[in-house]
């Protein structure tokens, strides 16, 4: 078993000016994920720090997305999938069967690689989640829609056309709409699976800026193939690779500034310098 412990230079991190002590929002303990007999992930141990951005990097097929999907039990949707070990959210194991999956997914939202707005108008895209969780009053919903779109840095662009289809927006705007949709149910953690890989460079930077803006209130995990993006946006980086059994393992976890300037593991070095992967 490999435990990814982290030596942090200080208990506060410099990404934001507000120097709050680091606290683990989520803790992954000895987690393995199986698809039938195949062990897709082996012995993952890591902390996800509150109000920080953690990037998961690694070559294709190393289990990054599987890991991300474990965090809000998306793997439950795959019939043969099974999780061993635990994932604690504020100290409570969310992998336990007794946990309410719907509540877990409200607390841990997700944004996908391709923007996937509902075929509804912009307003309804954002109001959909809160309505599902029982908010009915129009005034309340209006406030949530406006707040979420503002947080997603989309409000100014769409405030006069809230009743147009979400699909009428550009790709970058659609992705920000999906982020607004995720924020509308006030999650605590946001999982992002390659959120900018289908976007142009300007839209990509917009998403990255937005991540910086909202991380004060949320905890973000991002899977990315783009090393420069991981280096730019994240506070912590987890490097994954497959082992000889083709099972994903976390080989290094640390502060992003260390991973990209002086990684400890030769395989991380080779990956971030583009020598393999």
């Amino acid at each position: 078993m490999t435990i990814q412990t982290l030596e942090i230079e200080s208990q506060t991190h410099s990404a934001g000016s507000d120097a709050k002590p680091l606290g683990a929002k989520m803790e992954v303990q000895n987690m393995s994920v199986f698809y039938g007999k195949f062990r897709a992930l082996t012995d993952i141990n890591m902390n996800i720090y509150a109000n920080k951005i953690t990037a998961i990097i690694g070559p294709s097929g190393c289990g990054k997305s599987t890991l991300l999907r474990s965090f809000n039990r998306m793997n439950d949707l795959t019939p043969s999938a099974r999780v061993e070990g635990s994932i604690l959210l504020d100290g409570r194991d969310i992998t336990a069967n007794r946990e309410d999956v719907v509540d877990v997914r409200r607390r841990i939202g997700m944004v996908f690689q391709r923007p996937n707005p509902f075929p509804k108008n912009i307003y309804e895209n954002v109001a959909y989640g809160p309505r599902l969780y029982g908010i009915r009053r129009k005034n309340d919903l209006d406030l949530i829609v406006e707040k979420s779109l503002k947080q997603a840095a989309l409000w100014e662009e769409v405030k006069d056309k809230l009743h147009q289809s979400g699909l009428s927006l550009s790709g970058g705007q659609q992705q920000r709409l999906c982020i607004a949709r995720a924020l509308a149910v006030e999650p605590e953690v946001i999982l992002m699976d390659e959120p900018a890989s289908a976007l142009d460079p300007i839209s990509t930077l917009r998403i990255e800026e937005l991540m910086h803006d909202i991380v004060k209130e949320y905890t973000i995990l991002i899977v990315t193939h783009n090393m420069q993006q991981a280096a730019r946006v994240s506070d912590f980086t987890a490097m994954m690779m497959i082992d000889e059994h083709r099972s994903g393992r976390m080989i290094e976890f640390g502060e992003t500034k260390s991973i990209f300037t002086n990684p400890k593991d030769k395989r991380t070095e080779d990956y971030v310098t583009g020598r393999f992967g």
Binding site: M227, F260, T261, P263, E269, V272, T273, G274
Partner: peptide, 9 residues
């Protein structure tokens, strides 16, 4: 080349 790690150093 956006150097990282050893290359950057």
């Amino acid at each position: 080349q956006q150097p990282m790690a050893h290359d950057l150093r």
